[in-house]
Simulated assay, not measured.
Amino acid sequence: MALLDWMTDATGPVVEGRGVVLRPPRIGDYAAWADLRESSRDYLQPWEPAWPDDDLTRAAYRRRLTVYAREMELGNAWPFFVLDPTGRTLYGAITLSNIRRGVAETGTLGYWIGRPYAGEGHGTAAVKAMSRHAFRQLKLHRLEASCLPSNAPSRRVLEKSGFRLEGEARAYLKINGAWADHLLFGLLSEDAERAEQRSS
C-alpha cells in the first residue's frame, strides 16, 4: 500500500465483531476522533502515556496516520478504529502492535473506548474481534496485553476476552508521566479456539 493511498483514503482489512466494526483510521475520521478524545480526556489520561501539547491537532493526526501506514506496510502493527456496525459512530480504537514473527509469532494489544461508550461491551467486542483476526488471518500464536492494577474495567475486558493473568511487571510503562506497574495477560490461539467452540 503506497503512502499516498493511505493519506487519501486508507485501505486495509475490515474486521467485524459482535456489534462493532474495526477498520484502519482515515483522514476523514479526524473530527470524530479529535472530538471523542477531547470529550474523554479526563477519563482516558490516567491510563495512557502523557498527551503531547499538540496531540489533538490535525497536523499531529496526519503524522499519526503516516506512522500507522509505515507500520502496516511492514506488518509490524495493525491500528484500527472501533466503530458501530454502520461505520458512522466512533467508539474508540484498538491496535495490535509489536508483532514478532519467527519463534515468537506474538503481538501486543492496546485499546481505548471513549467515555460516552464505556461500559457498553464495545471494548470486549473489539478485543475478541481483533484476537480472532490475529489468530486466523495473521496466524499469530500468542497475544499479550497489560493494564494498571487499578484499571478494573480494562482488566474485565481482558478476562472476558479469555486472557489469563500471567504476572506483574514493575515500572513497566510510563503512564501519565510516571513509571507504573502493570498486570500482564496472555492469550494463546488454541485457548481462543476452544473458547469459541464452547460458545458456539
Results as ranks from 00 to 15, higher is better:
Trp51Cys: 05
Asn98Asp: 14
Pro25Ser: 11
Leu36Tyr: 08
Trp78Ile: 00
Thr106Glu: 05
Ile99Gly: 02
Phe163Lys: 02
Thr108Cys: 03
Arg88Lys: 04
Thr57Tyr: 08
Ala93Asp: 12
Val127Gly: 05
Arg164Thr: 10
Ala93Lys: 04
Gly186Leu: 06
His133Ser: 07
Phe81Val: 03
Phe135Met: 04
Gly17Trp: 13
Arg136Ala: 13
Phe135Thr: 02
Ala125Ser: 15
Arg198Met: 08
Ser146Gly: 11
Ala31Ile: 05
Ala34Glu: 13
Thr89Pro: 02
Ala2Glu: 14
Phe81Gly: 07
Glu48Val: 00
Gly87Asp: 06
Lys160Phe: 00
Asp5Pro: 08
Tyr117Gln: 06
Gly162His: 02
Asn176Glu: 11
Gly110Val: 01
Tyr43Arg: 09
Ala32Met: 11
Leu56Glu: 11
Leu74Thr: 06
Asp54His: 06
Gly102Cys: 04
Arg37Leu: 13
Pro85Arg: 03
Val20Arg: 10
Met130Pro: 05
Ala118Pro: 09
Leu188Glu: 12
Ala104Leu: 14
Arg198Asp: 12
Gly28Lys: 13
Gly123Ile: 09
Arg136Asp: 14
Arg194Met: 10
Tyr68Gln: 10
Ala129Cys: 10
Arg155Ile: 02
Leu4Glu: 15
Ala34Asp: 08
Tyr172Lys: 13
Met7His: 11
Glu38Asp: 13
Val157Ile: 12
Leu173Thr: 02
Leu187Glu: 08
Ala126Trp: 09
His122Pro: 04
Ala180Asp: 04
Ala145Ile: 01
Arg37Pro: 00
Thr11Tyr: 03
Gly87Ser: 05
Ala77Val: 03
Val20Ser: 12
Asn151Arg: 09
Trp179Arg: 08
Asp55Thr: 02
Tyr30Asn: 11
Gly87Glu: 07
Gln45Thr: 14
Leu158Asp: 10
Arg164Met: 06
Arg23Ser: 11
Thr8Ala: 12
His133Ala: 09
Arg64Trp: 14
Arg70Glu: 05
Ser97Arg: 14
Arg155Glu: 12
Gly28Gln: 13
Gly123Asn: 03
Ala134Arg: 09
Arg63Glu: 15
Leu90Pro: 00
Ala34Ile: 01
Ser161Phe: 03
Thr11Arg: 15
Pro116Leu: 02
Leu184Val: 08
Leu173His: 07
Trp51Lys: 06
Cys147Ala: 15
Arg194Ile: 03
Phe163Ile: 01
Asp55Met: 09
Phe163Thr: 00
Leu22Glu: 12
Trp47Pro: 01
Trp179Ala: 00
Leu96Asp: 07
Gly75Cys: 04
Glu48Met: 08
Ser131Thr: 13
Arg23Pro: 07
Leu90Thr: 01
Glu16Arg: 15
Asp42Gly: 09
Ser39Gln: 14
Ala192Lys: 01
Leu22Ala: 08
Arg170Leu: 04
Tyr117Arg: 04
Phe81Asn: 07
Ile113Glu: 11
Arg64Ile: 00
Leu36Arg: 14
Arg58Trp: 09
Ala134Trp: 13
Phe163Glu: 04
Met72Gln: 12
Ala32Tyr: 02
Ile27Ser: 14
Met72Pro: 00
Gly186Asn: 06
His182Gly: 06
Arg194Phe: 06
Ser40Arg: 07
Thr11Phe: 03
Lys160Val: 00
Ala2Met: 11
Phe81His: 12
Leu143Val: 04
Ala171Gly: 07
Arg100Thr: 07
Pro116Val: 05
Ala145Gly: 06
Leu74Arg: 15
Ala59Gly: 07
Val82Asp: 05
Ala2Tyr: 11
Lys160Arg: 15
Ser131Gln: 12
Leu184Tyr: 03
